[in-house]
Amino acid sequence: MSDAAILCVDDEVTILKCLKEQLKRCFGNRYIYEVAQNAEEAWIVIDELISEEIKILIIVSDWLMPGIKGDEFLTQVHQRFPKIVTVMLTGQADEAAIERARREANLYACLHKPWTEAELQQVISTALD
Protein backbone atom coordinates (compact mmCIF):
# COMPACT_ATOMS: atom_id res chain seq x y z
CA MET A 1 0.00 0.00 0.00
CA SER A 2 1.14 3.50 -0.77
CA ASP A 3 2.37 5.86 1.95
CA ALA A 4 1.50 8.98 -0.07
CA ALA A 5 -1.90 10.59 -0.63
CA ILE A 6 -3.73 13.07 -2.82
CA LEU A 7 -6.72 14.78 -1.20
CA CYS A 8 -9.59 16.30 -3.18
CA VAL A 9 -12.02 18.73 -1.53
CA ASP A 10 -15.28 19.78 -3.19
CA ASP A 11 -18.85 20.16 -1.98
CA GLU A 12 -20.18 18.33 -5.06
CA VAL A 13 -20.07 14.53 -4.72
CA THR A 14 -20.08 14.04 -8.51
CA ILE A 15 -16.95 16.20 -8.85
CA LEU A 16 -15.16 14.23 -6.11
CA LYS A 17 -16.12 10.93 -7.74
CA CYS A 18 -14.88 12.16 -11.12
CA LEU A 19 -11.57 13.46 -9.71
CA LYS A 20 -10.92 10.21 -7.84
CA GLU A 21 -11.69 8.07 -10.92
CA GLN A 22 -9.47 10.19 -13.16
CA LEU A 23 -6.59 10.18 -10.67
CA LYS A 24 -6.83 6.39 -10.30
CA ARG A 25 -6.78 6.00 -14.10
CA CYS A 26 -3.76 8.30 -14.41
CA PHE A 27 -1.67 7.12 -11.46
CA GLY A 28 -3.04 3.69 -10.50
CA ASN A 29 -2.06 2.40 -7.08
CA ARG A 30 0.88 4.78 -6.63
CA TYR A 31 -1.13 6.96 -4.25
CA ILE A 32 -4.00 6.88 -1.80
CA TYR A 33 -6.90 9.03 -3.04
CA GLU A 34 -8.97 10.70 -0.32
CA VAL A 35 -11.97 13.01 -0.68
CA ALA A 36 -13.76 15.49 1.56
CA GLN A 37 -16.93 17.51 0.97
CA ASN A 38 -15.78 20.59 2.89
CA ALA A 39 -12.80 22.06 4.71
CA GLU A 40 -13.92 20.73 8.09
CA GLU A 41 -14.06 17.18 6.72
CA ALA A 42 -10.72 17.75 4.96
CA TRP A 43 -9.01 18.62 8.27
CA ILE A 44 -10.30 15.35 9.75
CA VAL A 45 -8.88 13.42 6.77
CA ILE A 46 -5.57 15.34 7.00
CA ASP A 47 -5.25 14.52 10.72
CA GLU A 48 -6.04 10.84 10.08
CA LEU A 49 -3.49 10.56 7.27
CA ILE A 50 -0.81 12.24 9.35
CA SER A 51 -1.53 9.99 12.35
CA GLU A 52 -1.12 6.99 10.01
CA GLU A 53 2.19 8.49 8.80
CA ILE A 54 0.88 8.90 5.26
CA LYS A 55 2.44 11.84 3.44
CA ILE A 56 -0.06 14.20 1.81
CA LEU A 57 1.49 15.27 -1.48
CA ILE A 58 -1.24 17.38 -3.06
CA ILE A 59 -4.56 18.91 -2.08
CA VAL A 60 -6.94 19.80 -4.90
CA SER A 61 -9.63 22.10 -3.51
CA ASP A 62 -12.71 23.69 -5.00
CA TRP A 63 -12.91 27.46 -4.56
CA LEU A 64 -16.63 28.03 -3.96
CA MET A 65 -17.67 25.92 -0.98
CA PRO A 66 -20.01 26.56 1.94
CA GLY A 67 -18.32 27.75 5.11
CA ILE A 68 -14.89 28.65 3.79
CA LYS A 69 -13.61 29.48 0.31
CA GLY A 70 -10.92 27.29 -1.22
CA ASP A 71 -8.25 30.00 -1.20
CA GLU A 72 -8.72 30.51 2.56
CA PHE A 73 -8.62 26.74 3.21
CA LEU A 74 -5.47 26.27 1.09
CA THR A 75 -3.82 29.20 2.90
CA GLN A 76 -4.50 27.49 6.25
CA VAL A 77 -3.09 24.22 4.85
CA HIS A 78 0.03 26.00 3.61
CA GLN A 79 0.58 27.66 7.00
CA ARG A 80 0.47 24.29 8.79
CA PHE A 81 2.00 22.10 6.07
CA PRO A 82 4.15 24.19 3.69
CA LYS A 83 5.36 21.14 1.75
CA ILE A 84 1.88 20.09 0.56
CA VAL A 85 1.29 21.19 -3.04
CA THR A 86 -1.94 23.18 -3.41
CA VAL A 87 -4.16 23.18 -6.49
CA MET A 88 -7.42 25.10 -6.78
CA LEU A 89 -10.35 23.87 -8.85
CA THR A 90 -12.92 26.45 -9.81
CA GLY A 91 -15.84 27.29 -11.97
CA GLN A 92 -16.13 30.85 -10.70
CA ALA A 93 -13.14 32.06 -8.66
CA ASP A 94 -12.30 35.66 -9.29
CA GLU A 95 -8.77 36.61 -10.29
CA ALA A 96 -8.21 38.28 -6.90
CA ALA A 97 -8.91 34.97 -5.10
CA ILE A 98 -6.54 33.08 -7.40
CA GLU A 99 -3.83 35.71 -6.92
CA ARG A 100 -4.36 35.66 -3.14
CA ALA A 101 -4.00 31.86 -3.16
CA ARG A 102 -0.80 32.15 -5.21
CA ARG A 103 0.67 34.56 -2.64
CA GLU A 104 -0.66 33.11 0.60
CA ALA A 105 -1.09 29.39 -0.14
CA ASN A 106 1.81 28.99 -2.60
CA LEU A 107 -0.82 27.87 -5.13
CA TYR A 108 0.80 25.58 -7.68
CA ALA A 109 -2.01 25.64 -10.27
CA CYS A 110 -5.62 26.56 -10.87
CA LEU A 111 -7.81 24.18 -12.87
CA HIS A 112 -10.99 25.61 -14.32
CA LYS A 113 -14.21 23.59 -14.42
CA PRO A 114 -14.81 21.76 -16.63
CA TRP A 115 -11.25 20.43 -16.74
CA THR A 116 -9.98 17.58 -18.89
CA GLU A 117 -8.36 14.41 -17.60
CA ALA A 118 -5.23 15.38 -19.57
CA GLU A 119 -5.08 18.78 -17.77
CA LEU A 120 -5.50 17.09 -14.38
CA GLN A 121 -2.81 14.52 -15.16
CA GLN A 122 -0.38 17.17 -16.38
CA VAL A 123 -0.86 19.42 -13.33
CA ILE A 124 -0.49 16.53 -10.87
CA SER A 125 2.47 14.98 -12.73
CA THR A 126 4.44 18.23 -12.95
CA ALA A 127 3.61 19.08 -9.32
CA LEU A 128 5.03 15.74 -8.20
CA ASP A 129 8.27 16.12 -10.18
Rank of each mutant, 00 (worst) to 15 (best):
S2Y: 04
A4P: 00
A5Y: 03
C8G: 06
V9C: 01
V13D: 14
K17M: 14
C18Y: 12
K20P: 04
K20R: 14
E21P: 00
R25D: 14
F27V: 06
N29Y: 03
Y31D: 06
E34W: 04
Q37M: 11
A42S: 11
V45A: 05
L49G: 09
L49K: 10
S51P: 01
E52M: 13
E53F: 14
E53K: 15
K55D: 12
I56H: 03
L57D: 09
I59Y: 10
V60K: 07
G67M: 13
K69G: 00
G70V: 00
F73W: 07
L74E: 12
T75Y: 06
T75S: 14
T75R: 14
Q76V: 02
V77A: 02
Q79G: 08
R80M: 13
R80L: 14
P82C: 11
V87D: 06
M88I: 06
L89G: 08
G91N: 04
A93I: 06
D94M: 13
D94G: 14
A96S: 14
A96F: 12
I98G: 05
I98T: 10
E99I: 12
R100A: 15
R102N: 07
N106P: 00
A109P: 06
H112A: 08
K113A: 07
K113C: 04
P114W: 00
T116E: 03
E117Y: 06
V123M: 09
S125K: 08
A127C: 10
A127N: 05
L128C: 03
L128T: 00
D129Q: 05
D129Y: 05
